[in-house]
Design a protein around this nucleic acid. Structure first.
Lengths: 351, 351
DNA sequence: AGCATTCTTGAAAGCGCTATCATGTTATCA
DNA sequence: TGATAACATGATAGCGCTTTCAAGAATGCT
């Protein structure tokens, strides 16, 4: 088949796709009329409408959104930047966004920026270059000022930040209180030595979860001990390594609070290798409530903050924003899901 | 020249975004020259090149791919249809695709079609409407004929199918042999009663995995017993339910082979509730090797077929295809990863 | 009936870019 | 040195659509 590229078959290879002009010709009306009919911009006489409909059907015509976008200045397309396209957690958020957007006849454009400021900026530029009607960022890592700057030109909805003005709407989820609830759950079970597996330090969610942990400790007069914390990067492997490190360091603890479920899985693995049982020897709490978390053994106690819901809300907010209103959405509050990975301490004590 | 140019205030809200024309004006050259410089279509004198570069930097110019696409007939944009944007498995594939595409200065457009033929067709139409340069489908569910039809117009790379002609390249991964290897592993450990957790029946991957399971059985003269199989839908919950069903039905078995890791997690959960230990009482094998699989307890024995690699290969293939060559890529073979969830049977027998 | 309104409709000008064609300029060869 | 080939560049014509602008047709009013 293809071996050499012919000089310029260019767009003519596209001959299967029909254009608005062809429809107009076949229907015996002007392109303007077809356009108006398509967009409902003006009323079209019954006769012409039928002729146009017939022509569209016969030619199997589908309007080219690219061209509409160029001409009309809007593309019915929303840029969505996520940090990792393969994250099971954010994946659910994308799902929610997609659902709402599609239903409203918008198309999401997903790009991922890998927690890197530079990549995030590149993604935004590329999205703006494509003239998206708006940008949704699932947990931005760019500084506030930059974000506000971009929002001057393009409507934006961002999550995980407390910041808003004009075309920039933020949807903050409450990592702080989620982490606090998780820690308090452990404390109420009698645990005093609670290890914390931290997430990527540069990542705002990570900081807030750490703050929530510290706040709970403080509220119960338990001193915060940095030796009880270990750094991870939100991946499974880092949770495993952090847990091992903690053990090797010799500090004592009866429970582990991991800054996300994936790291909790890593802790499970490390504990398993160490011959320790969950929750008999060590209690474990995660954060996020990934789908797998209720199926591992023992089922993981964790903090659920429905990223799926948040995705839906973000998308709805964007649509309203484009529509001209200035909504102030609220993220659903985090919720503690108690399963089987936590137990009172000492084991025989009453809860 | 026109006598009166009707001032169109309209799109002027976009005044922050600069255009090629503005760059040309500032650099004191014609738009054509700027375009040529941008695309490397022709050599540009050193002096003009510098002037253009300076203007681009000063104006913070980013070319509008939409317009280029319209004008030039190609958009440097590849449509990627996946089945579920939130699948941790396919997510890794998207990651691989994205990586290669970005590096080659293409932009992926992700859409998801939820294992529904109708949605898949809608996605493809929408992608074609946007004039993507090519379409990659991660495991299509549309019939061959339809796919071939689309490929007449737009270059396509699809996975999980054995089909190819002209602009349609398929990248088949070997579910059959993967499933066969997994089953044979169990057989070699002494298991004879091996339950199989099936995936969504309409899903081609599911059928092939079932076939591999049956082939291994047959090769070892073990009769295939439908009572030992239970249907799932590739989700965790379905694996749990299927396992419970199997137990309640009263059939005996010493091992479970789940058609994917997510269902294996479900089996873990059911087994846990039943008070059965893995692998002491029941061996479990999964399929896919999700990141979490090495971290659950016990770590799951599974079949790894690197979807990440496959994503990369698919993207590379697409780039070559657009470049005019007719590659015939090969997917990496599946690999059995033996971890701790399988054990010889009876427990005391030697392996 | 006469004039002002209100539709319906087509012509034409772009959106921002690429690609063809035509025009100077400079290098190359007999 | 004159003629030919080889560049560098600009002008121009669209890609497929939307959107004024203005002209006709149909309607309303006094």
């Amino acid at each position: 088949m293809a071996k050499t590229i012919p000089s310029r078959p260019k767009a003519s290879s596209r001959d299967t796709v029909s254009t608005l002009e062809m429809v107009a010709a076949k229907a015996g009306v002007s392109p303007s009329t077809v356009s108006r009919f398509l967009n409902g911009t003006a009323t079209v006489s019954e006769a012409k409408r039928m002729a146009i409909e017939a022509a569209i059907k016969k030619l199997n015509f589908v309007a080219n959104p690219i061209a509409s976008g160029l001409a009309g200045g809007k593309s019915r397309c929303i840029g969505v930047v996520t940090q990792a396209i393969d994250s099971p957690f954010y994946g659910r958020g994308l799902m929610g966004i997609e659902e709402v957007l599609i239903a409203a006849d918008y198309v999401p454009l997903f790009v991922s920026s890998h927690w890197r400021e530079q990549d995030e900026m590149r993604c935004i530029s590329s999205l703006e270059g494509r003239r998206v009607d708006g940008i949704i960022i699932l947990t931005a890592c760019l500084p506030d000022k930059t974000l506000l700057d971009v929002a001057k030109r393009t409507p934006m909805v961002i999550t995980g930040r407390d910041l808003g003005s004009g075309q920039l709407i933020s949807l903050k989820f409450d990592h702080y209180n989620g982490a606090r609830m998780a820690t308090e759950h452990l404390i109420s079970l009698g645990h005093r030595q609670i290890a914390f597996l931290k997430g990527t330090p540069s990542h705002p969610d990570a900081t807030e979860r750490l703050n929530g942990y510290r706040a709970a400790l403080k509220a119960h007069d338990i001193p915060y001990d940095p030796k009880l914390t270990a750094r991870g990067d939100f991946g499974e492997a880092s949770g495993e390594k952090a847990t091992q490190l903690l053990f090797n360091s010799g500090v004592k603890f009866s429970a582990i609070f991991a800054a996300n479920d994936q790291m909790a899985y890593g802790a499970y693995s490390a504990l398993y290798q160490l011959g320790l049982r969950i929750p008999d020897d060590i209690s474990v709490v995660g954060f996020d409530d990934l789908p797998a978390s209720s199926f591992i053994s023992p089922p993981l106690t964790t903090v659920k903050h429905s990223i799926y819901e948040i995705g839906k809300i973000a998308a709805q907010t964007m649509i309203q924003l484009i529509g001209g209103s200035a909504p102030s959405p609220e993220a659903p509050p985090p919720e503690l899901i108690i399963r089987k990975s936590t137990q009172s301490y000492p084991a025989d004590s009453k809860q």
